[in-house]
Amino acid sequence: MASAPYDDPVALKILIAGGFGVGKTTLVGSVSEIRPLRTEELLSDRSIGVDDTEGVDNKTTTTVAMDFGRITIRDGLVVYLFGTPGQHRFWFMWDELAYGALGAVVLADTRRLTDCFPSIDYFEQRGTPFIVAVNCFDGAEVHDPENVRIALDLDPDVPVMNCDVRRRASAKTVLITLVEHALRTLTANAG
């Protein structure tokens, strides 16, 4: 049986970043089938003292659980969503996740806006296209996205939007806004 050559499928990666508990998992779950992914990593100096290693002297690895989702655009074109681990001690995962990423959504909660500073710094430095999506929690005051832009000191071309990640339509709009932004970045660099 002669096997037909595989059409190389195109797999794209979008990162969902932001502080702990800001709704990353909810966003991934709203638009895709969510699956758990775990990775066992060496404990970095940073996490020593965070993980209680007393009494388990030989423990040198820690398990990091992440969520990822898959959206099939068509046969051979798939978008993967990866929720980046929120806690600082899992920063070592970021370089791997960000490598080759199409772009990133930084989810923000206006009650804890500073939580997304590290993500923004990271993507700015790396040159990864990103947008800021303010997740509007029940009971939280809804802010004008322009005020959020000023508070976060973002470049004028970075899209800032409000969203409700529990709603599929809203989560879709967030992703579309990001891909459109990535497309603009691409054509701006080319032109």
């Binding site: 797999a11 655009i73 490598y99 080759g100 199409l102 579309i176 891909v179 990535a182």
Partner: peptide
């Protein structure tokens, strides 16, 4: 993954945008 660096082609991105809208 094909075309990861630095960004996939314009055509692919447009296809993704249309695909997401149709979800």
């Amino acid at each position: 993954p094909a075309q990861v660096s630095p960004l996939p082609s314009e055509r692919i991105l447009k296809e993704v945008i249309h695909g997401l809208r149709a979800l």
